[in-house]
Simulated scan of single mutants.
Amino acid sequence: MAKTPSTQLVVCLDNEGYAASLERRKIYVTLPDPEAEKNGLLRIIDESGEDYLYPKASFRAITLPEALRKAVLAA
């Protein structure tokens, strides 16, 4: 996946109701979706490899050292 300036990494804290799509403590990539964020949602690339909307409260943004960030985005 190519890095874009708006690519954000988040960690899943709560997957209640989404156990098949999200894993707790796993790092996910978000896609920009300002309209969804206004409604308390994040667009996440989940376990299916597709992007879906999930409650923003279930995630926390993380900052990684650049080398590790590149490795996560390349995986």
Rank of each mutant, 00 (worst) to 15 (best):
L73M: 15
Y28S: 04
I45M: 14
T63P: 01
E47Y: 03
E16Y: 00
G49V: 13
D14P: 01
P32T: 14
P65F: 05
K3R: 11
A75F: 07
I44W: 02
L13F: 02
A67Y: 05
M1H: 08
E37N: 08
N39P: 10
E50H: 09
A61P: 07
T4E: 06
N15C: 03
G40K: 04
D33Q: 09
L41Y: 15
V29C: 08
P55H: 03
A61V: 13
P34R: 14
L42K: 09
L22P: 01
E23Y: 03
A2M: 11
F59E: 01
E66D: 11
L68P: 04
A71I: 13
K70M: 14
L42H: 12
Q8H: 07
L42S: 13
K38P: 15
F59P: 03
P32K: 10
A57H: 03
A36D: 14
A2T: 12
Y54L: 01
P34V: 14
T7R: 05
A67G: 06
R25D: 02
K56R: 04
E47K: 07
A61Q: 08
D46L: 09
S58W: 02
N15V: 00
L41P: 15
L73K: 06
E35F: 11
A36W: 08
L31I: 14
Y18T: 00
S48K: 09
